[in-house]
Design a protein around this nucleic acid. Structure first.
Length: 259
DNA sequence: ATGACAATCAGAGATTGA
């Protein structure tokens, strides 16, 4: 089973690029972030016509997440637990029923800039809530995935120019520590389970020719429970589509599971 | 040191992103 995550930076703006990538990559499941659309305006037909079931958790103008799946989706829930006053649409989960049932969580973790400040506080609080949900998933002792745009550069090797990110919310020691705290519970970073190579990125800024200079960062991640890590066959990044017409500033990351 | 770029909503320019 091939499962992908992709921050598309606006579903309307990606109405051509996203279906083109789907036709080429043929993922079974896709976790989308930054759909920037309310549920009613999401162009479901684009994906239903290609055989995908569609579940959205949208919001006007900003944020918004969704799941596309060629396999049936069960027990869909929206919103990360523990945030009764949180209006931002950043979390959706569902059980994908294939050969093996897999709990799949799609997330769009807050950016947190500028730091310090209220936005950074929100990021760290959100990460505490994420850790709580992560613990619950582990206690199930079943295959589960938390994947999406984490807005965290885990280590210096995950940035082309680590020094320019030193004081940014994506790379501050507190951000990295909060990310590690979740990993340390027992999750596997799928990409790093496959390779320790540098120069592997999932985001290139639109500005200052970042793509042309390969000035990227790795901030889109797959975290797997032990039972899911057992099923991991491959993890890759579809870097090349960053060079296509009207691209998102992120590219898809995907895993192949024996499931 | 700053801005550069893109998307959204709205219908200009502020806001957000990373």
């Amino acid at each position: 089973m091939k499962i992908a995550t992709f921050n598309i930076n606006g579903i309307k703006a990606r109405a051509e690029a996203l279906p083109a990538w789907l036709d080429e990559a043929e993922p079974d499941v896709v976790l989308l972030q930054e759909i920037k659309s309310i549920d009613q305006n999401f162009p479901r037909e684009l994906f239903e016509d290609r055989g995908y079931n569609v579940e959205t958790h949208g919001q006007k103008s900003f944020n918004g997440v969704a799941i596309l799946s060629k396999l049936p989706l069960e027990d869909v829930t929206r919103g990360l637990p523990g945030g009764d006053d949180d209006e931002q649409a950043r979390w959706i989960e569902a059980t994908v029923v294939g050969k093996t049932a897999i709990r799949v969580c799609g997330l769009y973790l807050p950016n947190g800039n500028p730091a310090p400040g209220p936005k950074y506080d929100y990021k760290l609080t959100w990460m505490e809530r994420l850790r709580s949900r992560a613990k619950e998933l582990l206690s199930q002792e079943e295959p589960a995935i938390m994947a999406g745009d984490y807005n965290v550069i885990p280590q210096d090797i995950d940035a082309a120019r680590p020094d320019v990110w030193r004081t940014d919310a994506l790379a501050l020691p507190q951000s990295r520590a909060a990310f590690r705290q979740i990993l340390n519970l027992g999750f596997t970073d799928a990409l790093r389970a496959r390779t320790q190579a540098p120069d592997i990125y999932s985001f290139w800024d639109y500005q200052a020719g970042a793509w042309q200079k390969n000035d990227g960062i790795r901030i889109d991640h797959f975290l797997l429970t032990p039972q899911c890590a057992d099923l991991l066959l491959d993890c890759q990044i579809d870097k090349h589509i960053r060079g296509h017409d009207k691209p998102s500033d992120h590219v898809p990351v995907w895993v192949e599971l024996d499931a």
